[in-house]
Design a binder for these strands. Structure first.
Lengths: 219, 219, 219, 219
DNA sequence: GATGAATGAGGGTTCATTCAT
DNA sequence: CATGAATGAACCCTCATTCAT
């Protein structure tokens, strides 16, 4: 399963082998979907391909997900859940809103370097699932508010700030995934983001350059 | 053609009536494509529907565009060309790189308010056509470099700056097109962008609040 | 179970609560089938839907009826049995073959007014089950022969008479069930039938207008 | 094309070889539909089978009939049109409403003897297409009214009379098609029908026994 | 006897695309 | 150049039915 980010594989794969049969199949189907969508793209991927990749018939696939859209939605939700939890847990011990923001941002961008295909899948899937997008944005939103309360950030509107956070991150991920980014793109983008949110250039650069806490699923 | 932004309609429609027959048909086909894609979405739109909307047979449509992808690419190129030229022309007389940047950004965001469907089409089409995206980005890139030369901007890397420009703008457009934006979202986002590019909060806010030059196609 | 004709519900429902477990389940399955087929139509109804309506799994349903056709056949038989017995019992005390014929006919037509969905189901199911149709026709056949023996009827052939009986009745039921029948359609059709079987117009009208004996399941 | 009633084949087949290509294909598709539905039954017949029988792909079939239902409706309409016109033309010269009624009825019943499969198709298709059924009933309705005006018929209600006409005829056709009818079933049923409509037994028998005018398409 | 899970076989429908005219 | 007509290749989805537990 090459495209799966190694750091997240463990968490996402959990349940593949244990648990009752229905849940095992369910997991296998989601994994097959990841594989296929990574290879062919979201809209070119077919239910048949997913079923075949999972080693079941389409009928079985439809027993678990009543439509292709339902499968995609569920996949988006699971991916988002897994990813957000993993990243967020990695900096649970950081109290500084600005640093939290920078770490989150940089983690996503680095993910794109580690697993380009997977990242494009994620971006595709998010666009197709506004609900999940909102779920994801809860995390940076919390950090944003924390930073504001700590007087690190000052923004004209929360909506604009969210657009900056989401927009810069998304764009950076896409660029990195496509292989068109210079070195330390994650830091540069994080610095720009912090500046957009109201920090001075110096501060922003410093916070954005701090070492990233490790990403483990065991914490 | 309700979804076409009125300000751009004239420019885009040019060529519909004049010129040799082949070019007229060509234009009509592109217009039909805009209509259909606005109504059904990029991927749900079919060649048959486009042909019918243009009042020709599919075979004729294929005489002009050898594949659906070619049609979409061409449409993207024309849309981008028209839009960029119009917006860029509107602030040709502005010498301040920062103000130029802000105006460009705000114009795009306002477009989303005026023509939500058309905007979503544009965003769709851009995602599907990296080449065109690059073309568009030439304009803000020039303004970015101008601002840097004028010491208004200071950025860690051009790539990061472009991601900020593109990302914030795209996200803001989407939010506005979906009707989820507060008032003056264009100004707020422009201000954030200018801050990201290195301006102080005060300066950024002032520049972002300056009146927008009118958008005419005749100038 | 709204579509079940109230007068027949009791008889049809008998066995739902009493008896050994297997028979109770059997009854419940048939009832579920009635419900589902009334709602979706005979051919659109699926075994899954029937099972779900009965609160069991499809596998259980298949434990009782080896195929969908078997279920339908059994349902047809039970419906016919229930219905014929009820109607026939209601005029057991009538000795006049012509009156018996008229009552039977009118009862069926009235059933269509009381329970249109159920009636359409019945017609569907009959068409799909010639054996059951023949079973039903035994009752009017007996009345026909009685009437002939009593010199009330005189027909060129039994087959033709049966076609008249069955055809007029079926058609009238359909019309009534579809809501396209005038008032007293049952009497009018019964009168036509009696005339077809050889009675004078005056006699036919008189017999067809006699009061219907009540339809009870207990008598 | 065994199941097509020879007498009607000519009329129905007209257009198979002449005319523009689209219409030729259209006709071929309808013929293929007749064949397939006769062999497999209405609901078991698939679009694929029809397409294959016509020697085209399913896509072509869908170019002509946008859904299976559309195909069936159109087929019903064409069959009804062909059949009604042929039968009606055959007794255009008869002025007696009763005789017209008897001829129509008998022709339909005889049709069932000549082409049992085709008849069952017709009955199936009619049930699935109430609009067409109404179209067909226009012809006997006209004869009914004529007979009433001529004082040959006297009926309690037009609706009841139509049910008798339609019901007896349908039932007789089915019985004959299934091979369960005695000799001269057409005459017997016609006589019953005329009696139902108010004629005396003697008159009815006499009218029903008159020779049938020939059924030619050339008239 | 009931169940959970799975499936084989196909059904209707779509659409980008081609080619003789 | 435009067209009418046709098509190949899937696609999403359904459902009667089975079998290990």
């Amino acid at each position: 399963m090459p495209p799966l980010p190694p750091a997240l594989a463990a968490a996402f794969l959990e349940g593949t082998s244990g648990g009752p049969k229905r849940e095992r199949t369910h997991s296998q189907l989601l994994h097959a979907a990841v594989q296929v969508i990574c290879e062919r793209g979201l809209q070119a991927a077919t239910m048949q391909q997913v079923a075949q990749a999972a080693g079941v018939t389409t009928a079985t696939l439809y027993n678990h997900f009543s439509t292709k859209d339902a499968l995609v939605q569920r996949l988006a939700a699971v991916l988002a859940e897994t990813l957000c939890r993993a990243i967020n847990d990695s900096y649970a011990h950081i109290a500084d809103g600005a640093e939290r923001m920078a770490i989150g941002q940089r983690r996503y961008v680095r993910l794109a370097a580690d697993s380009p295909d997977w990242t494009l899948l994620l971006l595709d899937v998010m666009t197709a699932s506004p609900l999940v997008q909102e779920t994801i944005m809860q995390y940076p939103l919390a950090d944003l508010r924390l930073g504001v309360k700590q007087k690190k950030f000052k923004v004209p509107s929360e909506a604009a700030a969210l657009d900056a956070i989401n927009g810069i991150c998304t764009q950076a991920m896409r660029r990195v995934a496509l292989g068109a980014a210079p070195a330390k793109h994650d830091q540069a983008c994080a610095a720009l983001l912090l500046r957009a949110l109201g920090m001075s250039a110096a501060e922003a650069a410093e916070v954005a350059a701090r070492p990233l806490p490790p990403l483990t699923m065991e914490g």
